[in-house]
Design a binder for these strands. Structure first.
Lengths: 338, 338
DNA sequence: CAAACAATAGTAAACGTTTTCTATTCATAG
DNA sequence: CTATGAATAGAAAACGTTTACTATTGTTTG
């Protein structure tokens, strides 16, 4: 099949050691010899076997990326930036989808380790494995960076988006526009939703708003979330509670709300203002363009890649937590209360 | 660092060969011995080194997936299905983004080969490498399946979506609804756009329509495509040509058209009907839901994975072309001409 | 009771590299 | 001339597995 270093050595009339040195450029090789070797490599179409190399070198120049799901609109941006940064630094990325399942997560990580990968980036990993210390133990064995919302609960290498900043900014923005009846839309159990709900409740209380309304739309894949939200919010609209603004926990829910309004002939932002969260691709694509909270996924992706490369190259496993503020991005889905 | 088979052997008081046999279950091992070995494995937290295994076995149970770009809405569905199928069969997936760049494509493939991966699935690879025979040569070295639009130009293992079927269906659908002034919206150079444009022209001619209008919106990432299309189509709307339907070459362009109409206070589907192509997530999410051509990306993804696994396991590199028909999915963006 | 065989387990080679150690050549200095 | 050292290149061990070959038991059979 493919030529090996032995074939190259034979053809060039030198030893395999010399071929190796010529390829890796880490020991002196006579120019003349080098030429013969390069010629042989060219003729044989030789490509070094990375598997054999990494067996000795104990490095594969590759990083495993864990995501809960591939179709989640949340991830393309961050994964793309991770990939770009890794590739630019001579690394390769293997993408693993865990379905948010803690067991799957462990299997996947076993696989990553047994393949001698150099590091792991886990995006929004399961609470279970965070809580039971699995990731903490793991971080002693292999460089790992975890990307998720900000909490003080865990130690280790985390890159976090602090949703608090952006969420408060969003609520204040709505307030400033004159909105006093703000609906909060969330999904099932998730740290991120709980955090935001607390902020919402506090906000209602501290501003002495008389109106508080929390709608939960369950969970599911992207489509399901949009549809369920639309359905539930349509019902809500029929209740005539006359809320004037909606704070949705992510862009998909915000879109669900927008679609419900369209069906009910309610105009956005004239009649109802809507704020989403995540600043996914979607928020720029739909009409009206969505005012949303930017998680800075691109920056975070780049940073995660840079940090993991740093840990790999320095062989130092430090514990570091880097927090990115989130920021409200104002587009066209909010307006002044009439 | 991690325990090796030698450590296990020592601890269990047997030879490494016996440990290997116990793990792989391919030779008889006494129950008693097996127990000792399993105990040692457990105690040491031993995980076999896949790198060492694959050096001998020449297989890594992994498949490299090539995509032009990660943020393309076209891919999540297909990649997810590929991944699911591979994982269910004990394989692992490495995702590589090539930016549609032929050189990058070659580099990536060198990397895949040098890592002893067992196969390749290339989604919409570059025309250059298809034309210059690179993929054909490659297919002699490693199992590879190429997913793209249907053309008779290439030989090898292809899984294709035949856009012709769905495109004609779409045009006929618009015709049946009474539309005679149909605008065709496309992007820059791509086989797929050319194919559709030809079909459109033929359709106009054979139905003796007096109206033919082709709009090209250039190229770019998802957002750029939506925005450019919106911009260009808004201008078109001002031209007062009074077209009543739009056939867009993909969902992003269709959304651009829809957004343009919304800005111009033109209602969909009452005033203008719009058809997209690809049946991406987006088409179900936007409002009104988009009537579009389904490329059956989920089926294709599954099939590609099944076929590559088959080739890998049978070690037979056959040449096979599987064509999937595309199909119009009718949702809410088209209506009868008033 | 010797011969044959099944069941089990050990030895060592192999996979394709990198790198330490060693050997050779050649130029320079004493 | 011999001694020294730099430049270059080869031999062989090592990485962690799998497996062909061999060795040891114990059991059956003629």
């Amino acid at each position: 099949m493919g030529a090996t270093i032995h074939d190259v050595a034979k053809r060039a009339g030198v030893s395999i050691a010399t071929v190796s040195r010529a390829i890796n450029n880490n020991y002196p090789v006579k120019a003349e010899t080098r030429e013969k070797i390069e010629k042989a490599i060219e003729e044989l179409g030789y490509v070094p076997n990375e598997i054999a190399r990494s067996l000795i070198l104990k490095t594969t120049s590759s990083v495993g990326i864990l995501v809960p799901g591939i179709t989640n609109l949340f991830f393309p941006t961050i994964v793309e930036e991770i990939n770009r940064t890794l590739v630019n630094n001579g690394f390769t990325m293997s993408l693993y989808s865990t379905d948010g399942n803690p067991i799957m997560e462990k299997n996947v990580i076993d696989n990553i380790i047994s393949r001698n990968m150099d590091g792991i980036i886990a995006i929004d990993p399961s609470m279970e494995n965070l809580d039971n210390g699995y990731f903490k133990d793991l971080s002693k064995k292999i460089p790992i960076i975890i990307i998720n919302g900000n909490t003080n609960k865990y130690k280790g290498n985390f890159i976090c988006y602090d949703e608090e900043v952006g969420s408060i900014e969003a609520l204040q923005y709505l307030f400033k526009l004159g909105h006093r009846k703000i609906v909060f839309v969330r999904g099932d159990r998730s740290l991120s939703y709980d955090l935001k709900e607390n902020l919402y409740r506090q906000f209602v209380k501290s501003n002495n708003l008389k109106y508080e309304k929390i709608i939960s739309v369950g969970m599911g894949n992207s489509l399901e979330v949009v549809e369920k939200t639309r359905e539930i919010f349509e019902k809500f609209l029929h209740s005539k509670e006359n809320a004037t603004a909606v704070f949705a926990c992510n862009d998909l829910m915000a879109v669900g709300v927008i679609n419900a309004c369209k069906n009910a002939q309610i105009q956005i932002p004239q009649d109802i203002s809507v704020i989403g969260c995540d600043n996914t691709l979607l928020s720029n694509i739909i009409h009206p363009k969505l005012t949303t909270i930017d998680l800075k996924m691109d920056e975070i992706g780049r940073k995660a890649a840079v940090e993991i490369i740093d840990m790999i190259e320095k062989k130092s496993i430090v514990n570091k937590k880097i927090v990115y503020d989130t920021k409200l991005v104002i587009r066209d889905s909010c307006g002044e209360k009439k």
